[in-house]
Amino acid sequence: MSERQAQSVAFLARAGWDGAERRFLAGDASDRSYDRLTRRGAGGGVETAVLMDAPPGKGDDPAVFLQVAAHLLGLGLSAPRCLAQDLTNGFLLLEDFGDGVFARLISETPAREAPLYTAATDVVIALQSAPPMAGLPNLSAADWAEAGCFALDWYRKVALGDAGDRDGFYAALQDVMARYADGPRVMILRDYHAENLLWLPDRAGLARVGVLDFQLAQLGQPGYDLVSLLQDARREVSRETEAAMIRRFKDRTGADDGFDAAYAVLGAQRALRILGIFTRLCRVAGKPGYLRLMPRVWGQLQRNLTHPATAPLARLCQRLLPEPTPEILSRIGAP
């Protein structure tokens, strides 16, 4: 047994869950992992909980997770309640939302896409209509542009051997961000997509949408979480659903005519960043499974770059970024 495993066993013993059956539930792009615990309750029924293992010093702070969860719960939304915690060693014992992951439910019954995405869009609207949580990071257009440069720093550099015209790329991205996507801030969750959302049919209203993976919440643009939801790197959202949810968001928030440009710019920035992150995850973290998602992200990038607001950036992307062909993806995944 490793030292980390021993720490988790000790934590569960202190929490009163020693002896529970433990099964790996999920990992993600970070160093976090999740196990589902199952035990027989005092009344004879089955009880479950989820162990979050977030090793200290790896970038994700469980204390922030708890703070954001408390804010979401205060708004009547469904975030996992904490049953026990060891913040020093990076362990949380959380309420188990079950297996109703949006992505799985839609894969099994495609007709559920529109109603589930409607519920998820309404959660975004509710979150943004409330005052944001205090103390959230607030990135500038320059910060967002720097993050988008991951496409050159990782994706292009690994694929072609150099970062190309990074200064020109950064300037163009900063300019379109400042022009079209640097307005009033709202609270955004950032990783808001179908694998981080669970359907909780026994609850009512907005609480039927269980939300996970929100510890990187910050202040951002109103369209960002909508882009994250509708331009999902992990699954193809139908064009009809995307268009309907954009209309719903605009109608219910009173977004002005500039929203479509902001949506395209945010979508381009996010796709650029993801191309770089997926490359880094493959080369540094040894997670080549993300390579298969890159053609979808590339397609989303190309769609966003057709909007006139992104024209200067589009020209640079065409010149500097190679399409993720099988040859390019093989080169990225070679080591």
Rank of each mutant, 00 (worst) to 15 (best):
R156E: 07
A141V: 01
L83S: 06
D153M: 11
G161L: 02
I106S: 14
G168D: 03
S107M: 14
M133S: 10
M133T: 00
Y155D: 10
L127Q: 03
D167W: 08
D165T: 14
D165N: 14
F97L: 09
G98K: 03
M133L: 15
G164D: 02
E95K: 08
R166A: 11
T121Q: 02
G90P: 11
A84Q: 08
E108V: 09
L92V: 00
R156L: 04
R81Q: 07
A151Y: 10
A130F: 02
D153P: 00
A114I: 13
I106R: 09
L87C: 03
N89T: 04
P132A: 13
D143W: 06
F97H: 08
V101F: 14
P132V: 14
D153E: 12
L160W: 05
R112P: 11
A114L: 14
V124F: 02
G168I: 01
G168R: 01
E108S: 15
D86K: 01
L116H: 11
G161P: 11
A147S: 08
A119Y: 02
P80L: 09
L94M: 04
Q85P: 02
A142K: 13
S107T: 15
T118E: 14
R81M: 04
L127M: 10
P115Y: 14
G98L: 02
A120I: 00
A126I: 05
A79V: 02
V101D: 03
S129W: 06
L136D: 07
M133H: 12
A134H: 08
A142Q: 15
T121Y: 02
E113I: 09
A130M: 00
P80I: 07
V158H: 13
A151D: 01
M133A: 15
S129F: 07
W154M: 11
A163Y: 02
W154Q: 12
Q128V: 06
D167P: 05
L93C: 01
